[in-house]
Design a protein around this nucleic acid. Structure first.
Lengths: 340, 340
DNA sequence: AACCGCGCTGTGAACGTGCACAGTAGTTGC
DNA sequence: GCAACTACTGTGCACGTTCACAGCGCGGTT
C-alpha cells in the first residue's frame, strides 16, 4: 500500500513527459489536447498514445494561472443553514446545477453566506478568483452579498428574481404569479368560496408574486383575515394555518406558497379535526418530493426545476463568455392530486 | 456599471503591486502574509496597509502551482441522485462538512458518482489534482470509485465503515450496533413482544450492523417473518412495512433502520387502520429532521452528525498532513418521542 | 527562379506565487 | 577587534501550462 502511494505521489507526469514519450514538443502536445487544430494525424496519434501510457492529466492550477480562468463555479446559498436540509428545493437546485455543470466539466464549489462572517469569507473567496461565476440562491432581498458580487464584476445568476437588481443581475425564475393564478382558479373550479392563503415572506419574490396571483383571481374576496404570512418553513406553515383557523374558521380552501409549509398546514388541519379535502382543500407550490409524501398527497404547482437549473447554467456560461446578463422566466404547471 | 466592471477586470493587483506600494520586496510581502515570521513590525504594517489600499488577494492558482496543494477538498456522493434531496441525512452531512471546512478556509467541491459516466469523470477529476482529499459518502459497498481513489493514493475519509476497506481507508461512523440495541431494548421495556424490523440494504454497514444489534437483544425471538429489508427510501419503507403486516399481522412494534423509511412505515400503518403507538410502536434511526415532522413524532436513535462531520474533516486533514488513516466510532443516543 | 501561402512544428515568454539562498546590518561574545 | 550569531531583506528559480511567434518544408503561382 505505501509502495503504491509513494509511487503515485513520487511524480505526476507533466506535459514534458508526454512530449518526450510522443517524440514531439510541448506545444504540439498542448495543441493536440486542446482542440487538435494544426496537428498532423501522426503527431495526434502519438500524443494520445503517450497520454495513455503515461497517465497524464493536465495540472489545473498551471492551466488556470495562464488562462486566467478558474474553470469552476460557486453555488452560494444565503439562506439560514437549516433550510438546506429542511426544504428539498435547495437540494434539487444544487443537484441540478451540479449535474448540468458536470457535463461541461465544470466543478461546483458549495458555499454558504448565512452569517456575516460567512458572507465576508465567501465574498473574499470569490474575489480571490477561485471561481469564474456564481450561482446565487437567495430568496430574501437585502443580503449585501449580492452587492459585493456585483461590485466585483463577477458573472452572477440568481435563482428567482433578485429584487432590486432585476436589471443588473441575470436570473432564472418560475412564473410565480401565473402559477398562483392556476392554483386559485383550480380551487374555485372545485366549488371553494372561502379560499385563504399562506404566503412566503414579503421580502422574497415568491412571497410577493404568489400573493399577487392569488389576488388577481379573488379580487375583493381576498379579505385580510384570509391572508397569513409564512416563512417557507414547516413550523411557519403550521403557525400560519393555526392563525387562519382562528381568524376564518369557515375557510374551505388554502393556497399555500410552498409544499413544505403546506405539509405543516396539513398537520394542523388534521389536528383540528378537519378532513382534507372534504372540509378544506389544500394547494401547495413547488411540487417537491414532499408533495407526494403527505397524506393526502398534495395538489401543487410544479416549478420546472430542471429547466430552471439548465437556464441558470446557460445564463452563467454566457456571461463568463462575455455576454451581458439576461433573464429567463419559465412556465409553471398545475399538478392535481388528492388534497383538492 | 460597465465602467466598474472593466476597472475591476482590468488588472487584479499582484504581489508585485503590493510590494511596490509597501516599498519592500515580494519575498517580504509573502512572508508577512504567510505567518509573518522574520518580518519587522514596520514592514509588516506597511504590507498590511498596502494590501488594504490595493485590495490584493492572493491568486490561488499561482499558489497551488508552487505549493503543489489544491487547498480544497471534494465531497463525493455515490448514491443515486434522488437520495441527496429525499433523505435529509446527506444534506446534513454536506452542510456540516462544508461549514467545518469553511472555518479552515478550505472550499468544498461537490461531485456525484452515481452512474458509470459520473464515476469516471469524478475519478479523473480527482486524479487531476483539483483537490487534496476526498470526503466519501457512499453507503453501498462495491462501488469501484473507492478503488480508484485508493489506487491514486489521495487522502480519503468515508462516512460509515467502508466495507472491504476498513483497514485501509479512514472513516467516521456512528456506533450502529449499540444504537440498534438501545432502541430494541427500549421497545421491550415498553412491553412489546413481537418486535419486527425493517433493515437497510445488506451491502451497507447500517444495514448489517443495525440488524445485528436487533438480533443481539431479541436472540431467538428474531424470527425471519419479523425481518424485512428496505433500501433507505420512503417507498422502500412502505413496501417493507406492507410485507411485514402480511407476514406477521400480530406485530406490536417495528424498529426501522432509518427515519425516512420509518415515515413510510407510519403511512402504511395508518392506512391499515393501526394506531401508533397504541397498536404498534415505531422506532426510527438517524434523528433527522423527518423525525419531528411525522405524526406522531418519531422515537429514534440520534446519530451525532455534527461530531461525525467534525471527525471526518479532522481525519482528512490529518491525512493531508501526512499522517496515516484512522477511524472514529461515535456513540449514539436514544431520543424518545410519541411513536413508542 | 523567386515568391507566396499553408500546414505543421519547436521555442521563449509569460502567468503569480513560495521557497531556498545569499546578503546586510546590528548585536553579542570572547 | 574579530568572529559568530541573530533578525531581517532581496533575488533567482521553479511550479506546469498556454499562447504568440518564428521557422521550416512543400506545392503552386507569378
Amino acid at each position: 500500500m505505501s509502495g503504491d502511494r509513494s509511487k503515485a505521489a513520487r511524480h505526476r507526469p507533466t506535459i514534458h513527459d508526454v512530449a518526450a514519450a510522443a517524440g514531439v514538443s510541448r506545444g504540439t502536445v498542448s495543441r493536440a489536447l486542446n482542440g487538435g487544430r494544426n496537428v498532423s494525424p501522426a503527431a495526434l496519434e502519438a500524443v494520445l498514445k503517450a497520454v495513455r501510457t503515461t497517465g497524464y492529466v493536465a495540472n489545473p492550477a498551471a492551466r488556470s494561472l495562464v488562462t486566467q480562468r478558474a474553470h469552476s463555479v460557486a453555488f452560494v446559498l444565503t439562506e439560514p443553514q437549516q433550510r438546506l436540509f429542511e426544504d428539498p428545493n435547495f437540494s434539487i437546485l444544487l443537484q441540478g446545477c451540479t449535474q448540468e455543470l458536470a457535463e461541461l466539466d465544470v466543478p461546483v464549489l458549495l458555499m454558504t453566506a448565512s452569517t456575516e462572517v460567512e458572507r465576508k469569507r465567501t465574498s473574499r473567496f470569490i474575489a480571490a478568483g477561485h471561481v469564474d461565476g456564481v450561482l446565487l440562491v437567495s430568496s430574501h432581498t437585502g443580503n449585501p452579498l449580492i452587492d459585493d458580487l456585483h461590485d466585483s464584476g463577477i458573472p452572477v445568476v440568481a435563482c428567482g428574481k433578485p429584487i432590486g437588481f432585476e436589471n443588473r443581475v441575470a436570473y432564472a425564475a418560475a412564473d410565480d404569479r401565473s402559477g398562483a393564478r392556476l392554483m386559485v382558479e383550480h380551487l374555485r373550479s372545485r366549488g371553494r368560496r372561502r379560499i385563504a392563503t399562506i404566503t412566503g415572506p414579503p421580502d422574497t419574490p415568491g412571497g410577493v408574486e404568489r400573493l399577487a396571483g392569488y389576488r388577481d383571481v379573488l379580487g375583493a374576496d381576498a379579505t385580510p383575515e384570509l391572508i397569513a404570512h409564512g416563512d417557507y418553513s414547516r413550523v411557519g406553515g403550521e403557525a400560519a394555518m393555526a392563525s387562519l383557523l382562528e381568524r376564518a374558521p369557515d375557510l374551505d380552501a388554502v393556497f399555500v406558497a410552498s409544499d413544505l409549509m403546506a405539509a405543516g398546514a396539513l398537520n394542523v388541519l388534521h389536528d383540528s379535526g378537519r378532513r382534507v379535502p372534504e372540509d378544506v382543500a389544500v394547494g401547495g407550490f413547488d411540487d417537491s418530493s414532499i408533495a407526494t409524501s403527505t397524506r393526502p398527497a398534495l395538489t401543487t404547482v410544479r416549478q420546472p426545476f430542471q429547466r430552471i437549473t439548465r437556464e441558470m447554467v446557460r445564463l452563467l456560461m454566457e456571461q463568463i463568455r462575455g455576454e451581458p446578463p439576461a433573464a429567463a422566466i419559465l412556465p409553471t404547471e398545475l399538478v392535481v392530486r388528492a388534497s383538492t
